[in-house]
Design a protein around this nucleic acid. Structure first.
Lengths: 224, 224
DNA sequence: CAAAACTGTTGCAGAATTATTACAAAGCAA
DNA sequence: TTGCTTTGTAATAATTCTGCAACAGTTTTG
């Protein structure tokens, strides 16, 4: 599910976009002010932000700047604006926006730009997302609700394996043979690892997800 | 030097762009027909192609398609067009264009889009920047916070590799095989180099960035 | 219900990995 | 050549991880 945050104060345009984009299969959260947008961002990881520049409680450019610099979000941004003046376009790119589209725009064009931006970003490839848990395998980083959790090698590998098969039960043998070349390890070792993973989840209040055991079979990751 | 191929039949617009972009330090080759453009492309590798859609000897979209599919060129393409109809924009993205700009456009906006595309598509060009660290591969110079740091060959190559994939974990094997043809080097050699790089960072108070090890996997560069 | 089968947790020894430094061989400029 | 720099290796110290065992707790089964 691709999640988009729409920041737009005009109710007509906002509603229109929400309906239209939702029907394309995007999940849209619609903020009408920067303040609202902030709340959404605290709470969620978005694949893309559509940002109007003129908003009741401030200018979108500053907001854009903030996001990029304060690392609240690394989501790509497409700027929407009625400004004919091109300064805004320039400024937008400088602040780190990925694209820029002038109103009035057709929905087809917007859609095309959205696809384009998402493609580019997703070449960064392989974020694994499970509810609020995000793994970035190539960076070996893990986040729960934006908060980094540090896992060591085995823990990370195991988690990655689970995230690639969410809700599926994996046996200890499967896990071991996926992790090690030499399978000369006692299978209960996996238990230890899982225990430690769970501890880290608990310490980071990751209570919306859970690794549960399936008696006699193995383990799976699931939503709590 | 960034090379751009401009494909535009209108002499007024073409000339204007050539002058304007040249003055920004780009090298511009200007083709007025698709046929001419083909000749240029056979001959040169461009960092970017600016492509008008309506041309005397055919449609730019087909051309775009050709380039991408027949692999004559993987240069990013920005489509320029007078078409108000947005179908063209959509089609353009589908054919693999990186961006799209409707005429009439301001030069500043075009410039912004050019920068944007160049940044996304290739770090090949020019400077590599990571936080306050700047590498200029062509000159083999490195700066932290404007202050030059002198790295020898191996150190520079390794750093360059990291800057091309910021935050990404690279294994010793990856690094070695990228650096040397002959992989007959012990992988722990990388450790020595990194140790020396770190020393130079420290000596130059480069304490906002860090090369950290990821136990059992490799190393990565990241913001401290 | 009680025994059997299985899972959860924790401490810890030793295995695995990394950091740093010294040194020698190789390269290179004068 | 000489003297200086670079680069790979080895040795050592320091750090971190991991598999195991032991025991407690839980679920299943006869």
């Amino acid at each position: 599910m691709v999640k988009i945050l729409l920041v737009e104060d005009d109710p007509v345009i906002g509603r229109g976009l929400q309906i239209n984009l939702s029907s394309r299969g995007f999940h849209i959260d619609w903020a009408q002010t920067l303040k609202q947008a902030d709340v959404f961002i605290e709470d969620q990881v978005y694949d893309l932000i559509l940002l109007d520049l003129k908003l009741p409680d401030g200018n979108g450019l500053g907001f854009c700047d903030q996001l990029k610099n304060e690392k609240k979000s690394q989501s790509p941004i497409i700027i929407l604006t009625a400004n004919i003046e091109e300064e805004s376009a320039v400024a937008g790119f400088e602040k780190g926006a990925s694209d820029y589209i002038r109103k009035p725009f057709g929905h087809a064009e917007l859609l095309a730009r959205i696809q384009n931006v998402l493609n580019i970003k997703s070449n960064k490839q392989g974020q694994l997302i499970f509810e609020k848990l995000v793994l970035i395998p190539e960076e070996r980083k893990a986040y729960y609700d934006q908060q980094e959790i540090i896992f060591n090698r085995r823990e990370f590998d195991i988690l990655e394996m689970f995230l690639r098969r969410p809700n599926v039960v994996l046996s200890r043998e499967q896990i071991i043979s996926h992790l090690l070349e030499s399978e000369d390890v006692i299978d209960r070792t996996i238990d230890s690892h899982l225990s430690r993973i769970r501890q880290k989840f608990k310490k980071n209040n990751a209570n919306t997800i859970r690794i549960s055991s399936v008696y006699g079979v193995g383990y799976k990751i699931e939503i709590a």
